[in-house]
Lab assay of single mutants.
Amino acid sequence: MDVFMKGLSKAKEGVVAAAEKTKQGVAEAAGKTKEGVLYVGSKTKEGVVHGVATVAEKTKEQVTNVGGAVVTGVTAVAQKTVEGAGSIAAATGFVKKDQLGKNEEGAPQEGILEDMPVDPDNEAYEMPSEEGYQDYEPEA
């Protein structure tokens, strides 16, 4: 019985440690998101679009440190934060509304985080759909 109880105690310690790591990862992701939003706020009209992409990228980098179902929630929060940063930029006159959601080359930025393969159960990952990809044929 002692062996059984000791095993359960060790398992509990492992769960607590994993929860603490997840909590730490979420806190880091939130900190990076805040950094990115402050970065966007300090940019001029020309830099705002690039700044919004930076927020998304920093958040995406930190999301990889967070495991399990938390990833889905962090990704949703990050996307809403990026959308909010863009709205703030438009409201303050840093950028025109028609410039939001495009990178410096004018290509749409939507789907940055949505296409990231995420499995809350950590069982399997699927690649994003290939609808947006084109076949590449090298020139002879």
Rank of each mutant, 00 (worst) to 15 (best):
Q24T: 12
K23C: 14
A140T: 15
T22P: 00
M5N: 02
K102L: 14
K23S: 02
E114S: 13
E110I: 04
G14L: 10
L100T: 04
E139C: 02
E61D: 08
T54F: 11
T54C: 13
K21Y: 12
D2R: 01
I112Q: 06
N65Y: 11
V49Q: 06
D2W: 01
H50K: 11
A89F: 13
T75D: 05
A17F: 03
E114M: 04
E35T: 12
V74E: 02
V77C: 11
D115A: 11
A19W: 11
V49K: 07
G73I: 09
G68P: 06
P128E: 04
E46N: 10
G101T: 06
E35W: 15
A85G: 10
K32M: 09
A140R: 10
K102P: 10
A85H: 02
A107R: 05
N65V: 09
Q24N: 05
E57D: 12
G14P: 01
P117S: 03
A53D: 04
L100Q: 10
E57K: 11
K58Y: 15
Y136C: 13
G132A: 15
V37S: 01
Y136E: 03
A124Q: 10
L38Y: 13
Q62K: 06
V118S: 12
A85P: 04
P138K: 05
V70E: 02
V74I: 02
E46P: 02
M1S: 00
A78P: 02
A19H: 06
Q99Y: 10
S42E: 12
G41F: 11
E104P: 07
G93Q: 05
A56I: 13
T54W: 08
E105D: 15
K43G: 01
K12T: 07
P128R: 11
K96G: 13
E61R: 11
A90Y: 10
A91C: 06
V66N: 02
E139I: 09
V55A: 10
S9G: 10
K45W: 15
A30H: 02
M116T: 10
P138E: 02
E110S: 07
P117Y: 11
G86S: 09
G36A: 15
V95C: 04
I112A: 03
K58C: 12
E130L: 10
E104M: 13
N103G: 04
E130V: 15
E105G: 05
Q109E: 12
G47H: 12
E123Y: 10
K12W: 13
E126L: 05
L38S: 05
S42D: 04
G86A: 08
G86T: 05
V118C: 10
S87H: 10
V52M: 10
G51F: 11
M127Y: 12
V48H: 00
E114Q: 06
N122P: 05
G31I: 03
G31T: 02
V74L: 15
D2I: 02
E126D: 10
S129N: 03
A17T: 06
K80A: 13
G86Y: 11
E83M: 11
G25T: 12
T44G: 03
E110H: 02
Q99A: 06
A78W: 13
A30I: 13
V118D: 04
A90L: 13
A17N: 09
S9K: 12
S87I: 14
E35A: 04
N122M: 11
E126P: 11
G132S: 02
A29L: 08
V26G: 01
Y136L: 14
G31Y: 13
V49H: 09
K80H: 10
L8W: 13
Y39E: 02
Q62C: 14
E123D: 11
G25L: 05
M1L: 00
Y39S: 07
E46I: 14
V77H: 02
V74N: 02
G36F: 07
I112K: 03
I88Y: 02
Y133H: 13
K6Y: 04
M116Y: 09
M127N: 10
I112M: 06
Q109M: 03
A29Q: 01
V63N: 01
T33A: 06
G84M: 15
E123L: 15
E57I: 10
T81Y: 10
V49I: 08
A107S: 13
V82Y: 12
M116R: 02
P128I: 10
E105K: 01
S87E: 09
P108M: 12
S9W: 14
T72W: 12
K58V: 13
V63M: 14
S42F: 09
L113F: 14
A85S: 08
Q109H: 09
A53G: 06
V70L: 14
D119Q: 10
G132N: 14
T64S: 06
T59L: 04
E105V: 12
T81K: 02
E20A: 13
P138F: 13
Y136A: 06
G25S: 15
L8T: 00
G132R: 15
S42N: 15
E105L: 07
E46W: 04
A27C: 09
L113Q: 07
K43N: 01
H50G: 06
G93R: 02
G84L: 07
A69D: 14
E130A: 05
D121S: 14
Y39A: 01
E105Y: 11
D98Q: 10
M127R: 05
D121P: 09
A78L: 11
L8D: 00
Q109Y: 14
E61Y: 13
Y39L: 05
A85T: 11
P108D: 14
E110P: 09
T33I: 03
Q134V: 03
G68L: 14
A140I: 10
D2F: 05
E83T: 07
P117H: 06
A11H: 00
T75Y: 10
A78Y: 13
E123N: 12
Q79A: 08
T44F: 11
A29I: 15
E105W: 01
V70H: 02
D135A: 02
K96C: 14
S9R: 08
G111V: 15
F4W: 07
Q134W: 09
Q24H: 04
K102I: 05
V16E: 03
A56C: 05
G111F: 14
I88P: 11
E114Y: 06
V95T: 09
E57F: 04
E28T: 09
V77S: 02
E46D: 10
A76Q: 07
Y125D: 07
S87C: 14
V49W: 09
A69W: 14
G31E: 06
K58E: 01
S129H: 07
A11T: 05
Q24V: 06
V77F: 10
F94N: 02
L8Q: 00
V48T: 02
E110R: 09
A89D: 04
Y125P: 10
D115H: 12
G68I: 14
G132Y: 07
